[in-house]
Design a protein around this nucleic acid. Structure first.
Lengths: 208, 208
DNA sequence: TCATTTGTTCGGATTCAATTCGGATATGCC
DNA sequence: GGCATATCCGAATTGAATCCGAACAAATGA
């Protein structure tokens, strides 16, 4: 047996509810007290369980954050994945706008619970745990290109994808987190759309 | 007297050396043990002082990280600031490349000491402590536009600046931190240059 | 139904890092 | 040299994370 398997997998409904309550309590505590202020006591108290119970399903506090992370990532994937077929048929700028507005809505749900989390764990979590989102968006990008044959002439797709995806995610989180933003979100969205749009147009017009 | 002024300001040379050693030890410990693994004992040990000494000049561990942050930010500003007059005369793509390569060199100095810090910085810096760098680059942008009068026709400069600066910084850090990058740094640089270049060209050509 | 086994919860006991504090040592100044 | 002040030290304190064994609840099967 693996050494770190003192943890249990919740089987009974009651246990599943406990796990859910703990993860949710994590988000709530994070919103209320920030990262440093989030103690196991707080989480347990908010979840309405005892501290000991946390360790029944999570090896340590870190794993609770991991579970929160997976939850957020899951929500994002769930939001985009099923809409890919529809998204690949859109024009570039509306597509960018659609993704960004939906992303914002998700992050601001429940009083910015997810945003609060993101702004801490942000991206540079030691392991790159945003990987699923990256893969998802890279996948969307590839499918988009396949649906717009002219775009196959674009060079250096992986690099451009990397830039647009990472740059986009960070910029939005950074903006939403800013307590006194100097630019409006709408302008940001338009700017990012133009960025991508002009790039494509510029790159395609290069040799014609 | 301010309430939080149990701290001393180092006056004697010995004390200044101690403070320097502590901050440097912070970077070293961070590289060796990661954030979680960096304890006050480690820092004190690496710095060759006692734990008690840390608290002579820093209110808590957090402040040591703050000092590290200021150090990195200071290095970046120091690197760019004096070269602004020269930078504003460059073409866009070489300018972007120049900035990014210098930024990379800085981050990779001393076995990636600063990079290691930066990759955690999001977590540490709930308040926007990259602000000086943002201001610096925004300033560079404004001066750049003033030296290239056609560019004054660009709309929405603040938003575009926000995107390019934040997107650029994050993308580079993200790339340098990636243990198995799928794109080469050179491609990334070229991509970011094109992104900015095409945007400007596209925006200027819009109505002409 | 009840006995037994297995899953779940509890909260005090333990461990370990952050921070404090009073005393020891070094430095600068006269 | 001797005084005042700056600096440093490290054991003691505090509080959070984690562990653990006992209590409780649910499922099983006769």
């Amino acid at each position: 047996m693996p050494p770190s398997s003192r943890q249990r997998r919740p089987t009974q409904p009651r246990a599943k509810a406990t796990v859910r309550a703990i993860v949710e309590a994590g988000f709530i505590s994070l919103s209320r007290h920030g990262v440093e202020g989030t103690t196991t006591r707080h989480i347990a108290e908010i979840a309405g369980v005892s501290v000991g119970s946390l360790y029944e399903y999570f090896a340590n506090k870190e794993e609770i954050f991991d579970a929160m992370h997976q939850h957020v990532v899951g929500e994002v994937v769930e939001m985009v994945q099923p809409r890919i077929p529809e998204l690949v048929r859109m024009e570039i700028r509306p597509l960018v706008a659609e993704l960004l507005y939906r992303f914002r809505d998700l992050l601001e749900r429940d009083d910015g619970r997810y945003l609060r989390y993101m702004s801490y764990a942000a991206y540079f979590a030691p392991r790159n745990q945003l990987e699923p989102i990256n893969r998802l968006l890279m996948n969307l990008l590839v499918q988009y290109v396949m649906h717009h044959p002219d775009l196959t002439r674009l060079g250096n797709l992986p690099a451009m994808g990397f830039i647009m995806i990472n740059g986009g995610i960070f910029t939005v989180i950074r903006h939403l987190t800013d307590p006194h933003p100097t630019v409006a979100f709408d302008d940001l969205v338009r700017g990012l759309g133009d960025m991508v749009g002009y790039f494509v147009e510029g790159e395609l017009g290069k040799r014609s």
